[in-house]
Structure formats: C-alpha cells, structure tokens
Design a protein around this nucleic acid. Structure first.
Length: 920
RNA sequence: GGGCAAUUAGCGCAGCUGGUUCAGAGCAUCUCCCUUACAAGGAGAGGGUCGGGGGUUCGAAUCCCUCAUUGCCCACCA
C-alpha cells in the first residue's frame, strides 16, 4: 500500500475515537488498581466550546491518558452545569423574541421552556470535546440538575440548615435588576468608569437658629436663597431616598451644620444632619447624603443612627411609588433627568468629571448592580473557612502555581457569608416551606416568618407540626382558619451545586460510603482557571472537608487565560476568537492540542497563535513520515552491523533518560516543557540522528533501499512504539494510528491501554549519551565545513582526527563516516597542510580540502579565535590570581577554573599551530 | 488604598536553595540544499550589559534594598 506523503488527520481521528468508544477504553470501574480521577469543571449546559475549554480539557486529557499508560485506573467524569442565571437569561431572551414575558408564565410553564432549551442545546459542548479526543467516561455524564445531583443539593441544604449554618437574613445584597435576583459578593465585578460627581445644594432648613461662627475654618455656603451645604454624589437619582446628611464630627469645615436640619433638593424633605466618624473629611465637601436603602455604608449609618429607610427602587430598577417623583422611570434615565432638573431649579452647585468603580453583574455584564435591602438565605462561612484553610496551607492540596495559596488564604481569612438564594426559577428550588395561616405580608420587615426546611413537602408537614405545635389545633388546608405550606419560590446559587461536584458525581451525599465514593474520592487533579478559585475551588474544599472529612483533590492546576497573539482577551466583539472545531478541521486535533500546549506554561496566560497549531500539524507529519520510512524497509537475515547495535543502545539510553525527565516534568505539571522534550526526542534524536544512522543504503539496481538486518528493524519498531506511547497523552490520534500499524494490531488492542515500563537511566546510559554527543559535534563540524565551502553532502571527504584510543573517531568511526559523508577517518598526530579544522572540546579535527582552502581566511579566523580565547584566559587568570577567590571558593570550583585555563591554553596552542602550518 | 506576580534573544518562555548544563532551547529571521521518509523538510548561521540604580560576596540573571514599567487579585470612600 502506498502511503500519502502527508498525514491526513480527518481520515484517522473519527475512526479511532469510535474504536475507543466501542471498546469502552474510557470506562472505569472500581478495581484493585490505583485510581486516578479527574472531574471536569462542568461547562454551561447550553454553552459552546471556546479556546479556554480547549486548553483546559486538553490538559485534563493529557493527565488522564498519562495515568492510564502508567497503569492506573483512570476515570475522567464529564458533565455540565445548569448555570442558573446565564441559562435563565438565555431562556428569557428567547421567550422575549417570541413575545412571551417570563412573568406571564407559571413556574411550571417557564421550567418547561427552560428544559426544552436545555435539551435542544444541552451537551453540544460535550460532543465537541470528543473531537478534541477527550477520553471521558461518557457513561458517567452528569448534569448538576439531574436527579442524583439535585437530591444531593437539597440534602446538603437541609443538613446545613439543621446544623445552624444556613440562615435567613435581611441584608443589603447586590441586586441584578435585569435578572431580578440577588447575587453573592463575588458575582459582582467592579469596573473603573468615567462618571460625574454632582455637587448638590442642601439648604439649611432652620436658618433662624443658625449661629455663624466667625474666623473659623468653617466653609459656609450662602446665596440669595439662604445657607446651604454642598453634597457630592455620583448618584443624584437616589436623593428621594435620603433620610439624613452626615458629617464627620471632627470636620472643621462643617461645624456650623451640627445639630441642624437640611432640605433635600427637589424633594423638599427635611432631614437631620448627623455626625459619624465614617465620613471622610477630605472627600468632596465632607458632607455625605445618607440613603439607607441603597448603599451598604448608608445602611449601616442608618442602623446606628436609627434612620428611616425609603426604598425608591422597584426590583427591575425603575423608581418606585415610595419615591414620590419620577415614578416608573428607569434609574439611568432618572440620573440624566434629575441632573437637568436640579440645574434648572438652581440646586446644582456644579458638576465635575470623576472616575469611580461601579459594580456589574458577572453574568449580565452590562447591568450595574444595585444595592438592595431584602431577605435572602445565607450560608455562614466562618466554619467553612476554618476547615478549608488548613489543607491548602499544609500542602495536602497543592496549587500549581503556588502563588495562588496566598490569594486563597487572603480570601478565606476575610470571607463574607455566602448569599445562596437567587430569585430565579431555573435551579434547585430552596427546600424551605413557609407556614401560611393568613396572607403573609410581602414586606421584608413583616412579622416573624414561620417556616421549616425539609427534603420533601410531606416531610415539611411533619416538621411543621413538630416545630409549631399550635398548628395541630388548626385544620390543614387552605380552608377557613386552616394552614398550608408555601414552598419557597427561590432557587439556589449555581455554585451551591457545583461545590458538591466531586462528591455528588459519585453519589457520595445521598449514599454515603458507597463503593464508588470510597474508591474515587479524593480525586487526583483539578484543572481549572484561577478566575473561579473562590467560586468553585475553595467551596469544593469546604464541602469535601465537611461531608467526607477529606480534600476533594490533591492538586489544582490553574491554567492561564487564552488570549490572542497580541495579548488581548478573546471576545466575540473583537472577533479574535478562533472556532475550535474549525481549527481541528484545519490542523487535526493532535495539531491543535500541541499548538495549545506549546504556548501554555502553568499559570501564565497563553498567547494563542494559529502558527502554533501549524507546528503541531508539522510534528504529526514528521511522525507520519518517519513511520513511512521504516515501513519501507525490508528485513533480511544478515549480520547486524556494530554501527546499528550501538545506535540502538544509544537510542534506548536516550529514551530512558528523556522519559525520566519527562516524567519529572509531569510531576511538576510543566506540561509544555514535557511536550517540548517529547518533541525534541522524536524530531532530533530519533528522526534526525538515529534513523539516519541506521538507514540502509539505497540499492540502485533494485531501485529500493537495501534490506536492513532483522535485529535492527525489530529494535527500531520497538523503539518507535515506545515513542508513540510517550507521545500519546499529548497526541492521541496519530500515535494510535501509527502504533496500530507498527504492532499489527489485533482487535481490542490499543496504545491507550498499553503500558510503558522503562528502567531508570543508568550511569552507562549517561556515558553512552556523552560519547554520541561528541560524535554529533564532530559530524556537525564536518557539515559546517561543507556549508562554508559549498561542498555537496554527497561528495566524500576525509577527516583527520587526533590519535586518541577512546576518542569518538575510534569508537564511533562507522557512524561518523556515514553521517558526515566521509570516505575515511585518518588518525593523525599532526594534521596535514591545506586543511580546514575545527575543535570539539579540546580535540582538533581537520578536513583536507586541497585547493579549496582559503588560507588567508583561515588564518584570520584562527587569529580571531585566539584573541577571543586570550580574553577568556586573562579573565580566568585574574580570578585565579585573586587570593580571596582561591581561599574562599570551594576546591572544586577552583579546580574547574584551572581546567578552563589549561583548556584555553591548549586550544590557543593548537590554533597557533594551525596558523603556522597555514602560513607554511 | 492593600496584596501578589512578572520584567532574560524579534516573540512567547526555561534557568531549583548564588560557582560548567550559565547566559539556554522553541518559534521567527538569514544563508545553502527539491539528497530516494518528510520543503508541513534538511544542513548551517546570526541574535541578549538577564528592566534601571545601589548593595552583600572572592564571585550575582540568581540573594538584599530601591526605583520604573506591566499584569492580576482584594477593598464600602460617597
């Protein structure tokens, strides 16, 4: 069969992936082997693959495949995340396109739409991962909202509630007015923004009592309408909610305002001037307007000073009835309008440009978050911080790179309670049931709520009766005087299910101590981005410690962000995000995998460039052609030349040595370096040197290569197979293809499940490698001479080598002759005249060139080299002349310097000799 | 405002606890070669005062101080 000169991935990849699936090579069951588990960071169920996923999952696949080759029971569990806010937003948008409003639907109707959407788009991303070669155990595919995972979430909620760690609280939360839900603190992203600082006039309401101090530091504003204070604010639209003005009691500028009242501009409300040290004297005028309903700090001031709270916003960010003005307008429009109105009313002192930070919703990045006071569910974090800190600080979990340990610690040491309720329908419904004996007030400050937390409604009834014995006297049901349960409308934060992922995937919550959780937990490695260290990584550690008393993983490998070659983040707007599947079509999955990884040192951002995929594709081609070469050789029952047996020994030594290093790099998660080492081993050592060494001559009579001795061919096939195994984790498809060719596969075999057992490199290996390295230098030396003199590689040359019994010219003479295209190697005491020479170490080699030699140029070259060496020499002499160096430096180092000196001297001597002979 | 990291060849990076793996590979660049596996290839070559300045030391890319630049994270200054 004729093989194409280029590797064609598209012919190969689909075939092998199916073969792997058919043979269930990805499947894992608990057995006696050592487990190696990875749980996938679940992508959004309706998401599509982007470059970040490509990187992340390539790394996971490499680790999993490596573990499999090492004989471990590798289990990579895939799945998707319901991503409540993101998905619900998408569903709402789609409904809107159809003219349907969410609020017009019942919860059940909405959820039906959401599930339809999920089934329609769900799992596309997992299909895409197959193209990449991801060797997930697909039978285990899970979803954060499937039955097992959902039950786990509810059980955990009930359990934590029973433990007193979950509570309901009226707090200032971050409110997303578009999604109309609360967010946790870490879901808010602060962005620096150009805005305005509005300086508003708050006239003193009781000027008759004002005592104007003289000759003081007070700064007093007055115009024809009277005395006023200037308040600087970025949010003039909140003045309807002002219930006080606050100054710092020590502020010399504003002493005159103490104890007075001021009038809120436009609104006309008279509010007190309160004093609190919270106020920064330096900022603005030192006067702060206090809006307890719409700012966390103001809320706190309101609490300490017993201020009234006026909530001027509706949940969707429009102005509420309570504001009394601008009712129904959107907050952003009001800001514009009120600025105009204030100007016109003469209540605006001035406006200046200002930069401040505005919080945006992580999932709705164009929506500014509104602080809002409402009742939410919280998970108390003190306990979790305490259990999650030690495993990381003590190194039971290792972070790669390590610098994230500090980040992790800082966060846990300053952690806020976790707001876990979301006013969404798509998600796990909070298993709380309110007892309704009469219509409940909607007001958050309504009377004390009565509720129970239970896994099912049935259980909730029982619990209700236990908790509130008075209910026993009442008839159950919605009838006259009866009582019913109202299921909490809210859903849980998505991360409240994700944090259980390494446990819930093995059903360790519902079914504690089951065989799978015992076997697979803790998992080995987690591969994820540093952006979710708090959202996910930290919380998994909390859940793991809480529910299994053990860490969820041993290592966390933080990948960088994939950027374009200019260092910009990939984004749809910029259009700089390549389509991963398109890339795979173009370069093959193996090529793309290599391209991704080459640019990806652990923890650094990766600057992705398609050219890197080209390099990956080229490497595939290199392997393919090396295989074609070997495949074309016939074997014959002839004596094995010593050149070949030596080359085999050397190549094997090389493999042992390099694989040891590669394994070490794996251990340090320096996968890009491991890949580089793999690449060089194959391209340089194997293809560039080894294959060329043993390559049989061409038989012109038969028009094909001469046969190769069987022993060498067999050994070469073995070596090739080993190399495929070493490369396989990085490039699974082509290595499988070539491995199968090499081994004449039988059905059911695969490189995936093969094992590679190599001895540790020995001292002998090191020696062998050193000899060959020197031999390579001699060969390169001759090639360089050819290059300089423009001599064809096919023209045989003679090499004069120094008389050294164990020198490479003797030990590797056959190899050097073949590789350098020599007719012979002459061992000489003195090189002859008319040669071009080069040094390898301190040994001088010479190629006689007769008339080709340019004597003058050679002399100039030698003189330049002598000069360089002289400089080198004087440097060392100076060092050795320094008594303190000789006294203080270790003997070894001093000895080395001496050797350098003598080497330099002998090199200089040799060069002078050369010049002499050239001058003849 | 606090913290962390980075700064080494045109580019993206490696250089572990100070001394032969010390100034490195890869890509890119340049030169030559369509040699019977591979031009998606081969052979060869050039290229860096290790961000600036100071210090410690016999000796610093490596340790310390300082400045500069960049990036990231955290934080309620309106």
């Amino acid at each position: 069969m004729e093989l194409a000169t280029k590797y064609n991935p598209s012919e190969v990849e689909g075939k092998w992936y199916q073969y792997w699936l058919d043979n269930k090579f990805f499947a894992s069951k608990p057995d006696g082997r050592e487990p190696y588990t990875i749980v996938i960071p679940p992508p959004n169920v309706t998401g599509v693959l982007h470059m970040g996923h490509m990187l992340n999952n390539t790394i996971q696949d490499i680790l999993i495949r490596k573990a499999r080759l090492d004989g471990k029971n590798a289990c990579w569990v895939p799945g998707t995340d319901h991503a409540s806010i993101a998905t619900e937003a998408k569903v709402v948008n789609r409904l809107a396109e159809q003219g349907i409003k969410k609020l017009d639907l019942t919860r059940e109707e909405f959820l039906k739409h959401a599930w339809d959407w999920t089934h329609e788009h769900g799992g596309i991303i997992l299909k895409q991962l197959r193209r990449l070669g991801a060797s997930c155990d697909w039978d285990r595919t899970s979803f954060t909202m499937d039955q097992v995972r959902s039950e786990s979430v509810l059980r955990v909620f009930c359990d934590l509630y029973d433990k007193g760690l979950i509570y309901r609280g009226l707090r200032m939360v971050n409110w997303d007015p578009k999604a109309q839900t609360a967010l946790s603190n870490i879901e808010v992203i602060y962005r620096e923004e150009k805005s305005k600082l509005y300086h508003l006039k708050y006239y003193v309401a009781d000027p008759e009592n004002l005592e104007i101090p003289e000759n003081t530091d007070n700064i007093i504003h007055k115009d024809e309408r009277g005395y006023y204070a200037v308040v600087a604010t970025t949010r003039p639209e909140t003045i309807m909610g002002d219930t006080a003005m606050c100054i710092n009691p020590k502020d010399p500028k504003n002493q005159w305002l103490k104890g007075h009242k001021v009038i809120v501009p436009l609104v006309g409300r008279v509010i007190p001037v309160i004093e609190d040290r919270y106020v920064d004297i330096e900022f603005g005028t030192g006067c702060l307007k206090v809006t307890p309903a719409h700012d966390v700090n103001d809320y706190n001031l309101g609490k300490t000073h017993n201020l009234e709270t006026i909530d001027i916003f509706n949940p969707d960010g429009t102005i509420s009835q309570a504001a009394g003005m601008y009712v129904g307008m959107d907050r952003t429009d009001v800001r514009r309008q009120i600025a105009v109105d204030l100007q016109e009313a003469g209540l605006m002192d001035h406006i200046e440009d200002y930069e401040n930070k505005v919080g945006y919703s992580e999932r709705n990045p164009d929506v500014a978050v509104e602080p809002r006071l409402c009742m939410q569910w919280y998970l108390s974090m003190k306990h979790f911080a305490e259990i999650a800190l030690p495993p990381v600080l003590e190194g039971k979990i290792k972070f790669h790179p390590q610098k994230y340990v500090t980040t992790y610690r800082n966060w846990l040491e300053n952690i806020d309670d976790w707001c876990i309720s979301r006013q969404l329908w798509w998600g796990h419904r909070i298993p709380a049931y309110y007892i309704e004996t009469k219509p409940l007030s909607d007001s958050p400050e309504g009377e004390e709520e009565r509720f129970v937390v239970a896994l099912t409604e049935e259980e909730a009834y029982k619990k209700a009766l236990e908790k509130y014995p008075d209910l026993k006297a009442l008839p159950s049901g919605s009838g006259e005087g009866g009582w019913t349960l109202r299921h909490d409308e809210d859903a849980l934060d998505t991360w409240f299910s994700s944090w259980l992922w390494p446990i819930s995937l093995f059903d360790g919550i519902n079914n504690p101590g089951n065989e799978e959780i015992k076997y697979y937990y803790p998992t080995a490695d987690l591969v994820t981005g540093p952006d979710i260290i708090f959202f996910w990584v930290a919380r998994m550690i909390m859940a793991g410690e809480e529910y299994l008393g053990d860490v969820p993983f041993r290592n966390v490998y933080f990948t960088g962000i994939v950027r374009d070659s200019l260092g910009r983040k990939m984004s749809k707007q910029l259009g700089n995000s390549p389509d991963p599947i398109g890339l795979i079509d173009k370069y093959g999955a193996d090529g793309v995998r290599m391209g991704m990884l080459l640019a990806a040192p652990a923890g650094n951002d990766i600057l992705f460039d398609e050219a890197l995929c080209e390099q990956g594709r080229n490497f595939c081609n290199k392997m393919w052609n090396a295989f074609r070469l070997i495949k074309g050789w016939e074997s014959a029952d002839i004596q094995q030349p010593s050149l070949n047996s030596h080359a085999i020994a050397w190549m094997q030594a090389r493999i042992r040595t390099d694989v040891a290093e590669i394994n070490d790099l794996y251990g340090k998660y320096r996968l890009n370096e491991a890949l580089m080492a793999v690449f060089k081993l194959f391209t340089d050592e194997f293809s560039g040197w080894y294959l060329e060494m043993i390559k049989p001559e061409y038989d012109r009579d038969r028009n094909c290569p001469k046969p190769l001795d069987k022993a060498t061919l067999d050994a070469t096939l073995d070596i090739f197979g080993q190399l495929m195994q070493v490369i396989h984790p990085f490039m699974p498809f082509i290595t499988e293809e070539l491995y199968q060719h090499i081994t004449e596969r039988k059905e059911g075999e695969s490189i995936m499940i093969s094992t590679l057992k190599l001895d540790a490199p020995s001292e002998l290996d090191a020696k062998l490698i050193a000899i060959y390295e020197e031999g390579k230098q001699v060969i390169s030396g001759v090639r360089a001479v050819r290059q300089q003199k423009n001599i064809s590689p096919r023209e045989p040359l003679v090499l004069e080598a120094p008389q050294i019994a164990d020198g490479v010219a003797v030990l590797l003479s056959d190899t050097v002759i073949k590789m350098a295209g020599l007719s012979e190697i002459k061992l000489v005491d003195r090189k002859s005249e008319g040669t071009q020479s080069f040094l390898v170490g301190t040994d001088e080699y010479a190629v006689p060139l007769g008339s080709l030699i340019d004597t003058d140029a050679e002399i100039r070259k030698a003189e330049a080299e002598i000069q360089r060496l002289q400089g080198f020499k004087t440097g060392i002499e100076k060092k050795l002349g320094n008594e303190r160096f000789v006294q203080n430096a270790p003997a070894q180092v001093v000895e080395l310097e001496r050797k350098k000196l003598s080497d330099a001297e002998s090199k200089i001597a040799a060069l002078q000799e050369t010049i002499k002979s050239l001058k003849g």
